[in-house]
């Protein structure tokens, strides 16, 4: 049981990254590739959050007096994830806009059919 408990989140994050990599390497639809990029982002974010997690502790917000400094998780990975999420959103938005333009020029989203430059 403890084995599953210890590895569950790592498997989730590693699995998401691997699924994303697989999509990027194998799939030919541009939108699917962009979704794959998002999978990788999510996987890395989960990895960051589980690095900061400490068993049985709570969020580092001292809004009530019941929470004391020995009882909170690491705040830094949460701050990093906040940044990473915003960066992921930015890349996603830009990727979709470029995909729109690629579609306008080629009338297809299949990367093997876009022959202008070698893929």
């Amino acid at each position: 049981m403890s084995l599953i408990y210890n590895w569950m989140y790592y498997i989730a994050s590693g699995g998401l990254i691997l699924i994303g990599m697989y999509i990027i390497l194998v799939k030919t639809n541009l939108i699917k590739i962009i979704i794959g990029l998002n999978f990788i982002d999510t996987g890395v974010n989960i990895l960051l959050v589980c690095i900061g997690y400490v068993k049985g502790r709570t969020a580092p917000i001292f809004s009530t007096s019941r929470i004391n400094p020995t009882n909170v998780v690491d705040p830094v990975p949460q701050a990093l994830v906040l940044t990473a999420i915003v960066i992921g959103v930015a890349v996603l938005a830009l990727a979709l806009s470029i995909a729109i333009k690629v579609y306008e020029h080629n009338k297809t989203l299949n990367v093997t059919k876009i022959r202008g430059l070698k893929w």
Partner: peptide, 13 residues
């Protein structure tokens, strides 16, 4: 996983 590995963040807390 789940162990206390807080280093620099002790200062912040």
């Amino acid at each position: 996983f789940g162990k206390d590995k807080i280093n620099v963040a002790h200062y912040y807390i």
